[in-house]
């Protein structure tokens, strides 16, 4: 059998076309089947998890750290004595450090010094995700910025990129610094970065985040920001809310009612 150059070109063109069509058909079929396969998820309704922090309610008891304690024990967050090695998922900072633009000479009295709970902002356009060289951190379809501790190489580029200081690195083995290990959630190992995961493991079971459940004042309101009728959206319609450094264009999913 002799194939001329013309035949060869024709054949290879046809086979490319065939392969392309097959791929396209598979893609179309794939998107169809995935839509059918998940009846539990309302595919028409987009999800973007978010949280509203009611600072007025939160400040009622400034010694309260129920949310922090609940998060730390749910996620095996270590308590390291050296502040340089601290690991923090949810923590508090004084108002003026969190919202420096709100701190002007004469407006500082009301909120100065009150502790503001902070966590990962689960940005719409997360700088940490943009810089991660291994996709160990990425944004899920529901807006949660996830971490894959199996893949993280510990380069800490995400920590340099995060404008909110929300990320912690395991400078040392965290296990000895965990009082009671919750066996249902992995600890981390030295050399990986971690942060708040919006309790995605609880959301998967239909539960709300641990910090939200733990708050005695119900100051943390969690819900779907994409749903106009959700609890956070109703609050945001009624009250004046701010995000942290919205001018950076990161689109934080955490709103503060001030």
């Amino acid at each position: 059998m002799k194939i001329t150059r013309k035949d060869f070109l024709r054949l290879s063109g046809l086979s490319f076309l065939a392969a392309g069509t097959l791929e396209a058909a598979r893609a179309v079929a794939g998107s169809d089947s995935s839509a059918q396969n998940s009846p539990g998820k309302p595919s028409a309704q987009p999800v973007r998890w978010g949280m509203v922090v009611d600072v007025q309610k939160c400040r009622k008891d400034q010694g309260c750290d129920a949310c922090i304690g609940a998060c730390n024990s749910a996620h095996n967050v270590p308590h390291l004595a050296d502040p340089k090695h601290e690991v923090k998922w949810i923590w508090t900072e004084p108002f003026e450090n969190v919202f420096p633009f709100e701190q002007s000479e004469y407006a500082q009295q009301t909120d100065a010094g009150i502790p503001i709970p902070l966590m990962c902002n689960h940005c719409a356009s997360p700088p940490c995700v943009h810089v991660c060289p291994t996709q160990a951190t990425w944004k899920r379809d529901d807006g949660i910025v996830m971490m894959d501790w199996h893949r993280c190489i510990g380069c800490r580029y995400c920590m340099a990129a995060c404008p909110y200081g929300s990320r912690s690195f395991n400078w040392v083995d965290p296990r000895p610094a965990i009082a009671h290990i919750n066996p249902d959630f992995p600890t981390r190992t030295k050399g990986v970065v971690e942060k708040c995961n919006f309790c995605e493991e609880r959301l998967a079971q239909g539960l709300r985040p641990a910090c939200v459940e733990a708050c005695p004042e119900k100051a943390l309101v969690f819900g779907n920001l994409a749903d106009p009728n959700s609890e956070p959206r109703q609050l945001l319609r009624k009250r004046f809310a701010v995000q942290r450094e919205p001018e950076l264009g990161t689109g934080p999913s955490i709103y503060y009612l001030v």
Binding site: D184, T187, T189
Partner: peptide
Amino acid sequence: PYCWNCHNQPQ
């Protein structure tokens, strides 16, 4: 396997 650096044995 260094699974156990992070994953726990349930009690």
